[in-house]
Design a protein around this nucleic acid. Structure first.
Length: 198
DNA sequence: AAAATTCTCAACCGCTCGACC
DNA sequence: GGGTCGAGCGGTTGAGAATTT
């Protein structure tokens, strides 16, 4: 039977040492080899979210907050993709930070999770709001090409209008496929290296 | 001081996806 | 084609900390 709950200092030490010597991957094997009474999944999570040397433990900066908000506008609740663009932050950190701090700051009510992922409720900026044509159709690439043409994806300059954030009827994070080539191109255009890094 | 309430975030759960047989 | 397995993702939970009453 696997152990659950918080990791002890000793468990952390054993896992860290094992990965230092043997490298990561094959998490179930690592769990067995280390003798830790943890499942591979738990070992992976502990390493990825806490023990990995690249993980930042300090508070989120304003810059990080703004970056997350901008990326969330683009990607919805795709935390791993968002985290991939925030150096030193894990998907779990980003997700927690979003749910506890940024939601509050943006005035987004919780409880809009799974069900909401398929609705059309996420995100708009003041610039988007002011545009005449609704920026939504069934083709994400075309939609965003138009959005870019209208200056709505100026992710470098955009200032987040927290009051407007929730009132959007634009696309949600799940309304498009990440395998869509046009989206990949878009992401690469606005976040150089984004696609190649994922 | 202590009980109650709220907040935070590490960890778990269920699910999907891709690789392999 | 279909079954199994491992990895990874996103939503949710709950223990402990912090704050309020």
């Amino acid at each position: 039977m696997y152990r659950k709950g918080f990791w002890t200092v000793e468990e952390d030490r054993v896992l860290t040492e094992h990965i230092r010597v043997h490298g990561k991957g094959s998490w179930n094997r690592i769990a067995k080899m280390t003798g830790l009474k943890r499942c591979g999944k738990s070992c992976r999570l502990r390493w990825v979210n806490y023990l990995s040397p690249g993980v930042k433990r300090d508070d989120f900066s304003e810059e990080e907050d703004d970056l997350i908000i901008r990326l969330h506008k683009l990607l919805g609740n795709r935390w791993s993709l968002i985290a991939g663009r925030v150096p030193g932050r894990t998907d779990n950190q980003v997700k927690n930070h979003w749910n506890t701090h940024l939601c509050k700051r943006l005035g987004i009510k919780k409880g809009k999770t799974k069900a909401n992922a398929n609705s059309k409720t996420t995100s708009v900026t003041s610039t988007e709001k002011s545009s005449e044509t609704p920026l939504r159709d069934d083709n994400f690439g075309a939609t965003n090409q138009r959005a870019i043409e209208q200056g709505c994806f100026d992710t470098q300059e955009v200032t987040v209008n927290y009051d407007d954030y929730e009132s959007s009827d634009w696309f949600s994070g799940d309304d498009f496929s990440l395998s869509t080539p046009s989206l990949m191109e878009l992401l690469d255009q606005y976040f150089p290296g984004f696609v190649s890094n994922h």
